[in-house]
């Protein structure tokens, strides 16, 4: 299976400037996707997850159009062909 991942500007130092990466997770979950992303861009997972392995509180991850905080967090299903975005949380108004 193949999943496209949108990389935010501040993490592109890990991807040689690439803004999209295509990875092949071993299982169809967000946790497995982050493992595959780490293999493709070493160091990136520790930027997205904190020391306890949870999503950092100021990072938003979307699987297709769905914020994973509304679904199952790291257990959120990531089907073949999905599009995943990692985005710093910003406030507005």
């Amino acid at each position: 299976m193949s999943v496209s991942v949108r990389i935010p500007t501040i993490l592109r130092t890990y991807t040689d400037g690439a803004k999209d990466l295509s990875v092949e997770p071993g299982e169809p979950t967000l946790a497995a996707l982050l493992d595959a992303l780490e293999a493709a861009a070493p160091g990136i997972r520790a930027r997205v997850l904190d020391e306890s392995g949870a999503l950092r509180r100021f990072v938003n991850v979307y699987v297709d159009e769905e914020d994973v905080r509304f679904t199952d967090g790291l257990a959120t299903p990531v089907p073949d062909g999905a599009s995943v975005s990692i985005i710093p949380a910003v406030a507005g108004g």
């Binding site: 501040i10 130092t13 997205v48 100021f58 710093p88 910003v90």
Partner: peptide, 10 residues
Amino acid sequence: AYACIECFGP
């Protein structure tokens, strides 16, 4: 710049 490269913090 608006997000920390280390931890995504504001």
